[in-house]
């Protein structure tokens, strides 16, 4: 009994060290004056952040990443919320194909998705445009949006709600906006956060579809990894800190939902 307890502690320590050391090292590197000859940094400074934030490309790349993630969330919402709702209420036949289409992207590596999209879309305004990038990001992130929303819908007694609302003369859009919407709001919020953090950190699709024309933060990071590690660490910390708060928000919302509704699964 004692032995298994020690081994549990050892596994937890391995886990904590393996997961935390790379992250903490990045944070420390970003404030270190110099850290390549000694075990601890030779001094601390915020100079690299000042340099990074003043870099003209940094602001552009940050803006691009923030907007790319935002547009992807919006497109996801527009496409998935009404469709998921209808598929779960009045067109049950659409549910199976919808489940399938939102699982499929898991089986398509992003490199291959990019290759397929640039093969098909060769005509000028769309080819390698930010618009095509948003579409690619939406395909890739659909599972993250669909799953929490589908879970919320499955937890509700939709048929009864729907019939009752219909009897009162509510239209489909009114039911969606005033009854279903607020009820699946937690699913929508956690789906949106998941999509946002996934796309905010997205490198592969951006570099392969738009390339240098539309630089995102991860692209800038890869560039600086080879040129200047200190700037790279400042970019990395900025990106990870944003992503970390997003995922903490997701955990918080998921917990709240568990307490609120009990039987739902995330």
């Amino acid at each position: 009994m004692k032995d298994s307890k020690t081994s549990k502690v050892i596994f937890l320590i391995i886990f904590a060290v393996y997961m935390l050391v790379p992250i903490l090292a990045t944070y420390m590197f970003s404030v270190a004056v110099r850290w390549d000859r000694t075990i601890l940094p030779e001094g601390y400074t915020l100079k690299w952040y000042a340099e990074t934030f003043h870099h003209p490309y940094f602001i552009i790349a940050l803006k691009n990443s923030l907007f790319l993630a935002l547009y992807t969330v919006v497109l996801n919402l527009v496409l998935i919320v009404p469709a998921a709702y209808i598929a779960h209420t009045r067109l049950p036949g659409a549910k199976m194909p919808m489940d399938l289409l939102t699982i499929l992207p898991f089986g398509i590596p992003r490199v291959i998705l990019a290759l397929a999209l640039i093969t098909v879309f060769t005509i000028r305004p769309i080819a390698r445009s930010p618009f095509l990038l948003v579409s690619a990001c939406t395909v890739f992130s659909m599972p993250y949006m669909y799953r929490p929303i589908a879970n919320s819908l499955e937890a509700m007694d939709l048929r009864t709600i729907n019939d009752a609302a219909r009897l009162q003369g509510a239209s489909a859009s009114q039911i969606l906006l005033y009854i279903i919407g607020p009820n699946i709001l937690t699913g929508i919020v956690s789906g949106s956060l998941l999509v946002y953090s996934a796309i905010f950190a997205e490198y592969t699709l951006a570099v392969l579809i738009t390339g240098a024309r539309f630089k995102t933060l991860p692209m800038l990071l890869v560039e600086f990894t080879r040129r200047d590690g200190r700037i790279a660490s400042a970019i990395s910390v900025t990106a990870f800190t944003i992503a970390m708060f997003l995922s903490l928000a997701i955990i918080f919302i998921a917990r709240k939902r568990e307490h609120g509704q009990g039987k739902e699964k995330v």
């Binding site: 950190a201 992503a243 995922s247």
Partner: peptide, 18 residues
């Protein structure tokens, strides 16, 4: 949960640092 977000370029860079 949080570390699932630490992937791709930031992860590669962190391992270069350590």
């Amino acid at each position: 949960n949080v570390t699932t977000n630490f992937a791709g370029a930031p992860l590669a860079f962190a391992f270069i640092i350590i």
